[in-house]
Amino acid sequence: MKKIFTLLAATMGLLSASAQQHGAMTFAGKSVFYISAGSTQMGTTETASDTVRYEGSDLTLPSMKYNNMVIPSFTIKNTKYTGDHEGVTWADQPFTATVGGKEVKGSSLKGSFTHDGGVYKLSLALTFNYGAMPMPITYSIESYYVKPTTKQVSVVVGGSIGPYINPSVTYDARIYEVDGQKQLDIALHEYSLDGTVMGDILLGSHIIKGLTWNEEKGGYFRDYSQDGITFHFKTSQGMDGNYGFTKGGNLLVKMNGTDITYAENAFQPGAMPFPIVSTFGKDDATGIDHVTTTQQQVSKSRKYISNGQLIIERDGKKYNVQGIEIR
């Protein structure tokens, strides 16, 4: 009997160590929150992208809001599970946590962490009471791993102006499945470029969703020019606002597992008549046909300095670097 208990203890120790090999992982996905009053559900709230953190046997939930009440983010420690870093199951279990001096008393926690073909998925369902609140809260989430990658970004304006370099820019990648097809979301963090022809510029954060595999280009690709995305664009020469992508909004991303190895983004903010092309990491070929075509067109334009200002002539019209036509 002693040998059996020793074997069980050793096995659980190995599972715990194996589950912690992945380190801290952040997941994002759609969540549903509601309060139960008997058979009635109140305050049902759906959030398109909530964030959960998973590390070893600990789970950190996001903050939740109901009317004027805010439940701060809290961590459930030492959850019980079976499996390893490739797949974990949480059988239905009670739990407790403390946040802001109030107790979180859970009557149910269950879920799973799966890894299938490069798609890491975390599904959770919890029921708990918060502080002195008499009615239980139910929270569930279907989420996918968000992996940050930091590399150098190189930016070229108008096909030949630049490149301008920022050595440390972060993109977040999130691979998931829709009807059996892998899709990729990329969150571009805010970054700056100094000393460009437009002065010092700041490109705001934004998310490009729904990239799908393109065999010809050898990566995940999306033309996002019609997706209604806006981002903050600021220059030391006067541009400062939120701009959409009028044309040429194309993103190609090459992956190695959950890591981004290379990305190329071609876009034209606002009324700018020529493209900005940014490359994330290094690659031998662009793979984006639209970028190549646009660059060839721009290369035929004439650029010169007039009264200390860069002027670009194209198709018989003159533009400044902000894309404003000079008449």
Rank of each mutant, 00 (worst) to 15 (best):
I76D: 07
R327T: 04
N265D: 12
Y243C: 09
V291G: 15
A263F: 06
H115M: 11
S236A: 14
D92A: 00
K30N: 07
G218K: 01
A132T: 14
F274Q: 05
S36N: 13
Y262I: 13
K65W: 04
V146L: 06
F221G: 10
G56W: 10
N67D: 10
D84V: 09
A125R: 08
A28E: 14
T40L: 09
I35C: 12
G195E: 09
D240A: 09
A187H: 09
R327S: 00
D58V: 10
Q297C: 15
T6H: 09
G111M: 03
T246R: 10
M198A: 06
R302F: 10
S57R: 09
H232S: 00
K247Q: 04
S123R: 05
N67Q: 10
Q183Y: 08
G238Q: 13
L14K: 11
L193A: 02
S306W: 01
D283R: 11
S160D: 04
I324T: 04
V156K: 14
F27N: 04
G257T: 01
D185M: 08
M25Q: 02
T294Y: 08
P148E: 08
K300Q: 15
Q152N: 14
Y145D: 12
L188T: 14
A48Q: 13
Q21N: 05
M239R: 13
F280P: 03
L124D: 02
A9E: 11
A125Y: 02
G199F: 01
D92H: 03
S39C: 13
Y224Q: 12
Y176N: 05
S31I: 08
G218A: 03
T279V: 14
H22V: 07
T150K: 10
G43L: 02
T82H: 03
T44D: 01
K209S: 15
G281D: 04
G13Y: 13
Q183C: 15
Y66L: 02
I276W: 13
Q21L: 02
T82M: 05
P136V: 14
D185Y: 00
T196V: 14
T150Q: 11
V153T: 15
L203V: 12
S236H: 12
I260E: 05
M272G: 12
K102F: 11
Y34M: 07
K110V: 05
G87V: 03
N78D: 11
P62M: 07
F95A: 01
P134N: 05
T150C: 07
N307T: 04
L193R: 09
Q21C: 14
I326R: 10
G249F: 04
G111L: 01
T45Y: 00
T89W: 04
A187Q: 10
D194Q: 12
Y319M: 08
P275R: 15
Q226G: 14
K30I: 02
